[in-house]
Write a protein that binds this DNA or RNA. Structure first.
Lengths: 210, 210
DNA sequence: CGGTCAGGATGACATTTGTCACTTACTCTA
DNA sequence: TAGAGTAAGTGACAAATGTCATCCTGACCG
């Protein structure tokens, strides 16, 4: 674990901070498909990813979801930071997209480190900025792209974070991520296959247009 | 100007920081409808709003716009902060929604203050969080609401930031903000009027459902 | 091997949004 | 006062998306 921490964050943090993270962070290895943070739950810890990928979701009033963005190793979710500091509840749901190793860092430590370590402060601001840019990209996708374009982009993003151009998922799961219906996704996938951008198989899709 | 600075930010910042902002910030009084920051331009200053409101816009590949959110007095746009620090170009356009007074703070000062003043650091993190929550709201609006719901919410938001339930705007301007066409807006406004939620006049709209 | 269930495909139809063309109404200026 | 320009309304049509029902296929289990 310490080796992975060193590998992912060693170039960012002072040795002293790395030692503190090592001492206080709770290591977890979570299989694919698990919810590690949910909407409305108080935030007690903040995840630092060591390996794998997480998807960050929003939810509407009917309980239907929408994918905001993916997180990968070396990332954290900045929203957890200030929700933790403000003692508010989570506005987003985090679900493991693939088997994931991470450190859960206690929320109260984050504030202490903000004052104590310039590298942590820089990390938090950089993380906010990066997530902000990703949310902007999500807004752009929703506002400017049609559903078939969103679908292709989604498959490409998924292939990128799992490092596998063969995606194991169902039409229904994709429909949930894109906040639409399964029938619409099946039709659009058919269209993308016709266009030579993907190859369809039962329970998985191979992305050709990367 | 110093009085307004004290009024809007006095409760947030140390006296020493306020003095530095006063000394280095460039006061501006900008009429409604002016672009104060544009996409692709390098960021040399960051605005601190004293009075009025600004709308923050995104642009697609065809040059069509989309409103992200409004900023009011006591606000800044966190995206300018890290874009300024990273010496990158602006990803958003900022346009005055009403006559606006603000201080333009030099970008290089922001980084200095980050290390020097805990209150500035707190302000930046809080600002990031607030903007993040607003972007989430924008995502929700785009993903979960139909165009007529988005339109009503837009009018309500506009009324709120201008402190006037009679909005001076055109169907075409609203269509630009919502990234749609004027005809669609005219029809939906007609529908909202029928539903008793607004009152329509040429060049302005009165919001009844607040 | 047959039954069940999940995943996927298809047809028909409805709703929402967008585009184009044209007309009407209002405002401003010479 | 008339003309020009802008703002708004309407009709017709197209495209995109969503819903419902039904059927087909593959995997799994008893």
């Amino acid at each position: 674990m310490r080796a992975e921490l060193q590998q992912q964050y060693g170039y960012l943090f002072e040795d002293e901070l790395l030692a503190e993270i090592d001492a206080t962070g709770m290591y977890k290895n979570i299989p694919q498909g698990q919810t590690i943070m949910d909407i409305g739950e108080p935030i007690t810890h903040m995840p630092l990813l060591l390996n794998g990928a997480i998807k960050i979701l929003r939810e509407d009033n009917e309980g239907d979801e929408l994918l905001l963005y993916f997180l990968e190793k070396g990332d954290t979710c900045a929203m957890t930071f200030s929700c933790g500091m403000g003692k508010t509840k989570s506005e987003i749901r985090a679900v493991t997209e693939s088997d994931t190793e991470l450190l859960m860092v206690p929320a109260q430590k984050m504030e202490v480190w903000m004052a104590k370590y310039p590298s942590w402060q820089q990390f938090i601001v950089d993380s906010y900025h990066t997530r902000m840019m990703e949310l902007l990209e999500t807004v752009d996708t929703l506002a400017f792209l049609r559903m078939d374009e969103r679908l292709l982009k989604h498959l490409q993003d998924k292939a990128k974070v799992t490092h596998d151009d063969s995606i194991h998922t169902t039409h229904q799961d994709i429909a949930y991520d894109l906040h639409t219906s399964r029938v619409v996704i099946s039709r659009l996938l058919k269209k993308l296959e016709k266009e030579g951008k993907i190859e369809m198989h039962r329970n998985h899709i191979k992305v050709l247009d990367l």
